[in-house]
Design a protein around this nucleic acid. Structure first.
Length: 201
DNA sequence: TGCCAGGCCCTCTTTAGGGCCTT
């Protein structure tokens, strides 16, 4: 599987918390070159206090009804998970090329949450058909490439890039992740070693 | 009721524990 021939799509999730077996997606952003995707999602559960603190999302509503979503106190246009994930799949299908989906800590967090939420919406088959289901973990990649004390996205940005950065805004996170990748110029072997497929799980 | 993550990596390791990283 030649990963270097693939179009790399960087993506990031903001969620209701860190528990990958329960959390819901609040924001899904992606970027590949100049092509961008972003969507906000109405969750059906409360946002953990710690998550609200770092990502700025709050909800209004209760019970099992979808909540209205606010970002830093301002209402955002949020859609149901099914609609958001279907739109993401449409975005991916527009590339009409083999893809490699990259995220920071993808293996332990983003891919686990994304695939669980896709499965819940019965969208996993279509997602795999469109995306190919290959993922790159940029946290693992950073650890393979560089000997650094911290491989947090925020610290990588301040170490490698001289650009302003709003951590925990998914659109900002994917933008800097792409910038880091372009700066690093990783070779095929190391990219391959940090690539995985959760299909069949 | 009360609880509340978990995969990966490192090492004072493998009969384990702790820190990193994601929200």
């Amino acid at each position: 599987m030649a990963m270097m021939d693939r179009v790399v799509v960087f993506f990031d999730l903001e969620t209701t918390g860190l528990d990958t077996s329960r959390c819901e997606i609040l924001q899904l952003a992606a970027i590949s070159d100049d092509r961008r995707f972003n969507v906000f999602i109405s969750p059906c559960r409360d946002i953990d206090e710690g998550a609200s603190r770092v990502n700025g999302f709050t909800t209004h509503g209760h019970g099992s009804d979808p909540r209205s979503l606010q970002l830093h106190g301002q209402p955002v246009d949020a859609v149901p998970p099914m609609r958001a994930l279907a739109d993401f799949i449409d975005f991916l299908s527009s590339f009409q090329a083999p893809l490699l989906l990259a995220a920071h800590n993808a293996r332990a967090f983003d891919v686990v949450v994304l695939t669980r939420n896709l499965q819940r919406c019965s969208l996993m088959p279509r997602f795999l058909e469109v995306s190919g289901g290959w993922f790159l973990d940029t946290l693992q990649l950073s650890r393979e490439l560089w000997s650094l004390k911290s491989h947090k996205l925020k610290d990588l940005v301040s170490h490698f890039l001289n650009m302003p950065f709003n951590a925990h805004d998914a659109q900002e996170d994917v933008r800097v992740l792409q910038e880091l990748y372009m700066k690093w110029k990783p070779n095929q072997a190391v990219v391959q070693s940090c690539t995985f497929s959760p299909a069949g799980r």
